[in-house]
């Protein structure tokens, strides 16, 4: 596996951005995930070489933080909040509806490769519940229909 030249460039810059090199691990993992869709064990090995940091440090961080996907995800990673305020507004029903109608079993990729539906904790949009995050974007005040439509129409 080889990282793109932009990714290598990014890593080089991050390594000198903070007081210690180790702080660059999280931002670099985000960059790897952006390029490859997830963080594979192989990518960790390559990143460890690029950063000249122990592989165990990177593995440890990858598994601690929930935003790093340790399995491939669909083109649209649909994260439905099921914490208290969203649950009161139908967040769990929304997650179940999307899993069913998009054929994405909890945490797995739909057969067409488009969707992974995950249930997540409070995303800080409780006043506009129920809500979901799709890749980087927030979608709020959803209904079952509006959420499904939004997702189906994504290019």
């Amino acid at each position: 596996m080889e990282f793109s030249s932009q990714l290598k460039e990014f890593i080089k810059k991050e390594l000198v951005r903070y007081e210690v090199k180790r702080s660059a691990i999280i931002p670099c993992l985000f960059a790897v995930q952006k390029e490859q869709g997830w963080v594979s064990p192989e990518a960790i090995t390559v990143l460890s070489k690029e950063m000249e940091l122990p592989e165990t440090w990177i593995t440890e961080v990858t598994s601690f933080y929930t935003m790093f996907n340790r399995k491939p995800v669909g083109k649209y990673h649909v994260q439905v909040c099921c914490n208290i305020s969203c649950s009161m507004a139908g967040g769990r029903e929304l997650a179940a509806h999307l899993e069913k109608n998009l054929s994405a079993k909890a945490g797995e990729v739909s057969p067409d490769g488009r969707y992974t539906v995950s249930r997540v904790e409070c995303l800080g949009a409780c006043g506009t519940a129920p809500m979901m995050q799709v890749n980087d974007e927030y979608y709020e005040n959803l209904t079952l229909e509006s959420a499904e439509k939004l997702l189906r129409e994504m290019e």
């Binding site: 914490n83 208290i84 305020s85 904790e121 409070c122 800080g124 949009a125 409780c126």
Partner: peptide, 11 residues
């Protein structure tokens, strides 16, 4: 880091 469930004012 605003993560306490119910909190969205820092955003």
């Amino acid at each position: 880091d605003e993560g306490e469930p119910g909190t969205f004012k820092d955003k």
